[in-house]
Amino acid sequence: MGDQKNLVVKFDDLPLHLILEILTCGWLGGVDLVCLELSCKLFRDGYELGPVNFKSLGEFAAFRLCGSNSVFVGFSDGAKDELLARCGGCWKRVLRFLQSVNESSDVVQTYSGNV
């Protein structure tokens, strides 16, 4: 047991898919992703997904979280593009907006996803 005291696991030692799973589990918001980017180079590095380049790993996580947001899913492609443009092309801002809409609505979603 004494050896476990010195055991340190750094975030950048984890596989990328596991890091993304942690970032997109639904517990983090746009502000949290900004704080992660400010605190760690790992989250500031760019990420490429096919033809789309993301400014950072936090930006990619925000994009994925927006894609699973029930409000955002209901938007037309044009409305999604307009929202992204209004947020300066920043997915973390889009995520923060969507989360504020969810918080201010009368609809309550349980942890299991029931409305």
Rank of each mutant, 00 (worst) to 15 (best):
C35E: 15
F63G: 04
P51D: 11
G89Y: 14
E48S: 09
C40F: 14
T24C: 15
L7Y: 04
G50Q: 01
V94F: 01
G2F: 09
S100L: 14
L20V: 06
N6I: 03
D3Y: 13
Q99K: 07
G50P: 04
K10R: 11
E59M: 00
V34R: 05
G67Y: 02
L95T: 11
L57F: 05
V52E: 14
R93Y: 07
V101N: 07
M1W: 10
W91G: 03
H17R: 06
G89A: 12
L42Q: 12
D77W: 03
L20R: 06
V9H: 12
G29I: 00
G30R: 02
R93Q: 10
A62S: 05
G88H: 08
Y111M: 13
E59L: 00
L7S: 10
A79N: 13
L84P: 05
K55Y: 11
F72R: 00
Q109W: 05
S112G: 11
Q4R: 11
P15V: 03
G78E: 13
S68T: 13
F60R: 06
V108A: 07
L42V: 11
N6K: 08
A62L: 08
D77V: 09
K55D: 02
V8S: 00
A79H: 14
D13G: 14
Q4L: 13
D106H: 02
C87K: 08
V73Y: 00
N69W: 01
V9F: 09
N53A: 09
V52A: 04
N53V: 10
I22V: 15
V8C: 00
W27F: 06
K55G: 13
G46C: 07
